[in-house]
Design a protein around this nucleic acid. Structure first.
Length: 597
DNA sequence: AGAAAGATGAACGGTTTG
DNA sequence: CAAACCGTTCATCTTTCT
């Protein structure tokens, strides 16, 4: 936690409150749930955010206190311009509700969520109703008014209009249609939007659960509510309340339900009813995501708690990942032979040149970019100035660069980044898995850096071996270079039908090439875009071979990963929001399989 | 030869955790 | 406090296409 004393970020605030309580109680899954909300359609968020109060001094007054313009405009709308006291109260409340660092997390200006944020500012019904108690509402609109829908419109426009009349914004509606496909049912669309909304609201809610519950949701207690919120906020500042209580924590050591060398006592867990298969599912992403992300992911994936595992317990390189799955956790076994677990064993040629003051025994996470030749050259020159025993400050500098870039010793004073085939070996892929076929060295690093650690994933999937002696049907989303396929194959689980969805042609080529080289007897179907995979396509596939036994996917981490300095926008980021497609497709498969039974 | 496309190298903080 | 982190973007060099 950084000491951001005065710097609460009042911008990009999702100020739904009561609505969150409603949404929170709705399980984001199941095709049948209809999430409706009271809101009307407002055009574009920019227009509303630029519509300031008529009294500029008032705005200036609160701006001077450090509140954002957006919030001040909202507070003034809520309370009227006359009552500065109640405006301040509202602003304090927003601040208290917003006093959580994960909301520094900006939503994109053009994202549906952001539109929602801004839109809500104009919509009193979307807002905490207790604030309305003492406000005379001359113009009380009704969220239940439904306009006639012209039956001559094309299907997707009818869907849009229906959603609009249900209170969704145009942005939400069109995003949902885009994601779910034009022929999706209204129920599917609302389900999707409700799910997406939860993603936005949950993070706030989660942090604030305590004060909200303690104050009740019934309104009429405005004074007490504000008081308690303030009190709670102060306590939290003083550390009297541990807000981490409800937030998912990373285990230490990060071994999940156990690793081959350190089996946990826990051999059983009770899955939520909705999570139980078929199909089995296995979802993966970076463990060190921004706060709240794993709470959201877990909530979407049927409230299954993530299993956080660092692959350094499986191989010579760290890889901290979270896995949400409904697999059995007993009778796991590792791939054999066990991979080398230290740098020394994995890269024996480096041993000779490894100085005693470099204490590393494990490599850090393999990423998509590597250190440059210039850097290793600079280090070599810096080291050559000293004899066998460089001074401490030089050692410190060299070690820092080694850790940052995963450099290894390949000669006297000579460091180098790992080669692509070393990436392959460390990650558990066959040698030359990503080599040839026109792929460049840079792209090999990129594909490998984005991949599973095969031994780790295989250990988790090993529980399936006894259950599918005749093989299984696999739906592999965001397949990449086929980590899941390789893991299952190495486990000796036959692959019957594999539907693999991967956007990169180079990666698809790698998997196809591997598929042929390993003489697979099954059927490999490649698709490019998860967003194009709709219910019809799925039903087609599942009808032909009788459903999927396992759905695996690690959705893009671009907007979650710590290395991203530019667009670490969280789960709503441009690429990482594809998580919702994983959920959408998983939920669709579950529904279709229920229907088929 | 010149444009277009591709590959490489380097600079770019901040969040989260123990 | 240190330590870690499935990354992005731009400039420049290299290769390929016209």
């Amino acid at each position: 936690m950084d000491g951001n004393a005065s710097g609460e970020d009042y911008e990009n605030i999702d100020w739904d409150t009561e609505d969150e309580l409603e949404i929170q109680n709705i399980v984001p899954s199941t095709c049948s749930n209809l999430v409706t909300r009271n809101a009307s359609i407002v055009g574009n968020g920019e227009a509303s955010s630029s519509a300031g109060p008529s009294n500029p001094n008032l705005l200036q007054h609160f701006l001077g206190m450090g509140f954002s313009e957006q919030l001040i405009v909202k507070a003034i709308k809520e309370n009227g311009e006359a009552n500065t006291e109640s405006i301040l109260e509202s602003l304090l409340t927003y601040a208290a509700l917003e006093d959580s660092p994960d909301e520094l997390n900006p939503c994109h200006l053009n994202s549906p969520q952001q539109q929602q944020c801004v839109d809500n500012g104009q919509l009193s019904s979307d807002y905490d109703e207790s604030f309305l108690d003492d406000i005379s509402e001359s113009d009380s609109w009704s969220g239940s008014e439904v306009a006639e829908i012209d039956s001559s419109l094309p299907e997707h426009e009818k869907a849009l209009l229906s959603l609009a009349n249900m209170g969704y914004t145009v942005e939400e509606a069109s995003a949902a249609v885009a994601r779910c496909g034009p022929e999706a049912t209204i129920a599917e669309l609302t389900d999707f939007i409700g799910a997406a909304q939860m993603a936005k609201t949950e993070d706030v809610f989660f942090e604030e659960e305590k004060p909200k519950i303690s104050i009740g949701a019934n309104g009429g207690l405005k004074k007490r509510k504000l008081y308690e919120l303030e009190l709670w906020k102060r306590k939290k500042r003083k550390g009297l309340i541990n807000e981490e209580d409800d937030v998912l924590r990373l285990p230490n050591p990060m071994i999940g339900f156990g690793v081959p060398t350190d089996t946990m006592v826990v051999t059983h867990r009770t899955l939520p009813e909705a999570a139980i298969g078929p199909p089995f599912f296995y979802y993966e992403n970076v463990a060190l995501a921004p706060k709240g992300v794993w709470d959201t992911i877990s909530r979407f994936l049927y409230d299954v708690q993530p299993e956080f595992v660092d692959s350094k317990y499986f191989c010579a390189t760290a890889r901290k990942r979270g896995y949400v799955h409904n697999l059995p956790i007993h009778n796991r076994f590792p791939l054999l032979p066990l991979p080398p677990r230290t740098i020394n064993d994995a890269l024996p040629l480096t041993k000779r040149w490894w100085p005693e003051w470099d204490k590393r025994t494990k490599l850090n996470c393999l990423q998509t970019v590597i250190g440059s030749a210039k850097l290793t050259d600079r280090i070599r020159k810096a080291l050559e100035k000293w004899g066998d025993d460089p001074p401490l400050h030089v050692q410190k500098y060299v070690i820092e660069e080694c850790r940052k870039w995963n450099l290894v010793w390949v000669g006297k004073n000579k460091l180098a980044p790992l080669e692509p085939d070393e990436f392959e070996m460390l990650l558990g892929f066959p040698r030359n898995h990503t080599r040839g076929g026109g792929i460049s060295r840079t792209d090999r690093y990129k594909s490998l850096g984005n991949s599973f650690q095969v031994d780790t994933v295989a250990y988790h999937l090993s529980a399936l071996k006894d259950m599918f002696p005749n093989g299984l049907n696999l739906l592999s989303l965001f397949s990449g270079i086929g980590g899941a396929e390789v893991a299952l194959h190495r486990l000796g689980i036959p692959l019957k039908n594999v539907v693999s969805v991967e956007i990169s042609e180079a990666n698809r080529d790698i998997v196809r090439s591997w598929w042929e080289q390993t003489n697979q007897k099954g059927n490999l179907i490649h698709l490019a875009d998860v967003q194009q995979l709709n219910g019809d396509r799925l039903e087609q596939f599942m009808g032909s071979f009788g459903g999927f036994d396992l759905i695996v996917g690690g959705s893009p981490c671009n907007n979650l990963a710590g290395s991203n300095r530019v667009s670490r926008d969280g789960l709503e980021g441009e690429q990482s929001s594809l998580f919702y497609d994983y959920f959408r497709i998983l939920d669709l498969v579950k529904c279709i399989m229920n229907k088929q039974q």
